[in-house]
């Protein structure tokens, strides 16, 4: 398996066929699982099955299992960056607004908050817009 002088590892067709079969089975599983309600775990189950499928595609179809260590580090490090991106963004959005969707999201309080927020910055450009021509003319003279 080492990539010494023979870096182009040829994966047998049988392996590809097995991976293809496994991907179809996992697709079947993820569809069947979606008919059950696990509550909060729904998204976790979907993402875990999808990640298993993604790993199969990466390691075998994309040959990452037989690729150089550096390429593997490059690609799998994306997962870390993506996790940081998603984790911090969700922490932020979760901290800013009430978290329980049933109490909050689709009933009504949001638009009230948003218009209040939107009105404040909306007032500033109007003032700025009025001042802009005044400041623009002296700059032109200079």
């Amino acid at each position: 398996m080492s990539s010494g002088n023979h870096s182009h590892h040829v994966i047998p067709v049988k392996v590809y066929a097995a991976i293809f079969g496994a991907l179809l089975v996992l697709t079947y599983i993820t569809v069947q699982v979606s008919y059950f309600n696990f509550g909060v775990l729904n998204i976790a189950v979907a993402v875990v099955v999808a990640t298993i499928k993604a790993m199969l595609v990466c390691l075998y179809f994309m040959h990452l299992r037989y690729d150089t260590v550096f390429n593997r580090i490059v690609f799998f490090s994306t997962a870390i960056f993506l996790a940081l991106f998603m984790g911090l963004a969700l922490l932020d959005s979760g901290a800013r607004l009430p978290v329980k969707p049933s109490q909050f999201a689709d009933n009504s309080p949001v638009p009230v908050d948003r218009t209040a927020e939107a009105a404040a910055p909306g007032a500033q450009p109007a003032v700025g817009g009025a001042e802009a021509p005044k400041s623009a003319t002296p700059e032109n003279k200079h």
Partner: peptide, 24 residues
């Protein structure tokens, strides 16, 4: 990798919006 992060932004938006507007 850059492609993953390009789509990543949309997945983050999806996750954030879904957690806020679950019923919708």
């Amino acid at each position: 990798v850059t492609e993953v992060l390009l789509f990543g932004g949309l997945f983050v938006a999806f996750a954030a919006m879904r957690s806020l507007h679950y019923e919708s």
